[in-house]
Amino acid sequence: MNIKGFAFILIGVLSCLSVAAQKNPLPAHNNWIFGPSIGYQYQSGSFLKASAWGLFAPNESQYMKIDAGANFTWMGGKTTVIPEVGFTYYVNDFVLLPFVKAELTPYTVTPKVGLSLFSLIDLGVGYGFDINTKKDFKQIKGVNLSLGVNIPLNFHLY
């Protein structure tokens, strides 16, 4: 068989596969990606962060993430758990995504900026503003540095 015959057969097979693929479209997916995350944060002390999150795309180049969880710390000779909610806006859909974030606890409001690697690893910096000081606890305010890992449970490529 010569090269022209082989090319003709290959094009015919690929055309048949294309027609078959059009008859069986890929299944539709939920627009939300969700999962757990774990991280470390320094703001007037060290915190271990654990949360659940959901991420959606309002268009092809922007992403928004909503998360809720808890910050764990050892201060004043005891373990303290502080609930937290956050909202993250990823600006682009490139490998490194710049983001802006706002976090709210019963004691602080913390705006942040940072970079994310495929929205899987977030590195952020911000400043926490004290809104309420916990009794028998130091103020949680000042510069905020954070590193988080987001684990998607329902990630899909199509």
Rank of each mutant, 00 (worst) to 15 (best):
V19C: 13
Q22D: 15
G76D: 14
M1P: 14
G86F: 04
A57M: 08
I33H: 03
A50Y: 01
G35H: 03
T79F: 15
F56Q: 00
G76Q: 12
E60C: 11
F99S: 01
M64F: 08
A102V: 11
I121L: 08
T79C: 15
T110I: 05
V85T: 12
I11F: 08
I140E: 06
G128V: 05
A20M: 11
V91I: 15
T105R: 00
F99V: 06
V85H: 07
N24Y: 08
G148P: 01
Q41V: 10
G45N: 00
G86Y: 03
M75Q: 15
V125Y: 03
L17A: 10
S37N: 07
Q22Y: 14
D122H: 02
S15I: 08
A20T: 07
F137P: 04
F94Q: 13
M64C: 09
P83Q: 10
P25S: 06
V91R: 13
S61K: 13
Y127I: 03
F6W: 10
K4S: 14
K78C: 14
M64T: 07
F34I: 06
F6C: 11
V81I: 15
K138H: 11
M64Y: 08
C16W: 05
M75N: 14
Y90F: 12
L157P: 02
I82Y: 06
L104M: 14
F72N: 09
V149I: 09
A7N: 12
G35W: 02
E60F: 13
S51V: 04
K134P: 06
Q139P: 07
I11Q: 08
A20L: 12
L147A: 09
S51A: 08
K65D: 02
G69L: 03
K141F: 05
V19Q: 11
Q139M: 08
G148F: 02
I82R: 06
L157Q: 12
G39N: 01
F56K: 00
I66T: 02
L147R: 06
K112R: 01
L147Y: 04
N132A: 10
F6L: 13
I140K: 04
S119N: 03
L97M: 13
C16Y: 07
G128N: 00
F155H: 11
Y89Q: 06
L120Q: 09
S61G: 12
I38A: 10
F94A: 14
G54I: 01
K23A: 14
A70V: 12
L115H: 01
G69T: 05
D93C: 10
G39D: 04
V95T: 15
D93N: 13
W74K: 14
I3N: 11
Y40E: 07
L55H: 00
